[in-house]
Amino acid sequence: MANPNVVLHVADVHKRFGGLHALSDIDLQIEEGKTHAIIGPNGAGKSTLLNVIIGKLAPSSGQVVFDGNVLTGKKPYQINQLGIARVFQTPEIFADLSVLHNVMIPALAKRDGMFTLNMMRSLESETGIRAKAEHMLEDVGMLNRRDMLAGSLSRGDKRRMELAMCLIQHPRLLLLDEPTAGMSRHDTNTTIELLKKIKARGMTKVIIEHDMHVVFSLADKISVLAQGRIIADGTPDQVRGNPKVQEAYLGGAH
């Protein structure tokens, strides 16, 4: 790796589903502390790329390196323990548990590791973790919903809670798959502010987003994906002016 600031290096990754080339020749370098947006039309392979990074899918060839660790071949929980958290496109939450417990669980994963047999301690005595979770919920504006069942939240609230579940782990790399989809304009703006705040704390982020308002207010760099290939990449201004991008993606919208 030439650039010492690169934390995540997706190197020559290919992913095929039968005859479908979902990802071809992907080479991506994400710099520490930066917000890197990935945009592209539906079915371009954006979610698939995140799936390869977090170990949900194995690449057909190529590998992913995070901070000197080869992620390819590692289990999802090992990859998380290295400091990568993800918000999914369709929220992955504990629908049968309370909002507070949903946020306490990732905090316990961070503190106690991937397995501990702490069954004689009472949950009531976890005051530190509880306080942290409540603080986190306050940050995303959901403290008043902490005793609700997570499954009964609105779509936008599920997303905000999932974001809180990721943020409480203080990951080094946060992957966001359309984090504002299904949110009202107001909640979208709150989320943008929150993401800007954590950027100030130096968290590296990869964000997939269809909402160009969100993309251009957050991203330091943008990669454009179409039919499994990166067709353009650069600063927001460079990408905005790129005719290939206009044609493949922005053209339809503007």
């Binding site: 289990k75 998380n80 992955e92 504990f94 629908a95 990732p106």
Partner: peptide
């Protein structure tokens, strides 16, 4: 206990548990 909460979380969403580091 926290252990019991993990068991309930596994029942609720095993995938999320794995991506949460368990």
């Amino acid at each position: 206990s926290p252990f019991g909460m993990m068991l309930k979380a596994i029942k609720s969403n095993q995938t999320r548990m794995q991506f949460t580091g368990f």
